[in-house]
Amino acid sequence: MTTKDIVLVALFAAIIVVLGFLPPITIPLIAAVPITAQSMGVMLAGCIIGARRGAAAYVLVILMVAIGLPVLSGGRGGLSVLMGPTAGYIAGWVFGAFVTGLIAERMVRDGQPEVRQYLGFFLASIVGGIVVVYAFGIAWLCFSTGTPFAKALIGNMAFVPGDVIKAVLATLAARAVLAGYPMLPSRA
């Protein structure tokens, strides 16, 4: 990694932490699930700084959690979070950001028609930020609690509407950054 890569990774990790402190928004129709901005970071990181750096930013965030800094939304932190039943989602962030980045790097380029950029970011966010994160999250949840897979999957569906809204918001933000300060590594 170049020095600039390290700086981008660190700054993005800091953005992810800041997202955890922003007030959560609630959508009237699905008021049960408040939308915390932090898990949007997976989509944002992949779409904005790409696969490798995006995943590295999450490794850094998890490292901070591990050494006892309360950097997750709601002031959570410490090894207990990484050992709890939802630890799979946290591990999934790293892979989710990576996959989001892979797709975004391949689908989105500077100078494309806007619609294609929006579509690329949205698809990348859905696959990386939702499918991949859920896969890791549900796998660990089932293993650690013994909950049957099918039931866990159904339970998870409650979060899908909120996460789709996040994908929309992340798409808008990623496209704004691409227009204003592009740094998504293009496929070399």
Partner: peptide, 21 residues
């Protein structure tokens, strides 16, 4: 709108990256 400010916030933050590096 906090979430609508995300784009500008990220640009403001990351544009320092070159100078810091």
């Amino acid at each position: 709108r906090p979430l609508r400010a995300l784009g500008p916030l990220i640009i403001l933050t990351l544009k320092d990256a070159d100078a810091i590096a």
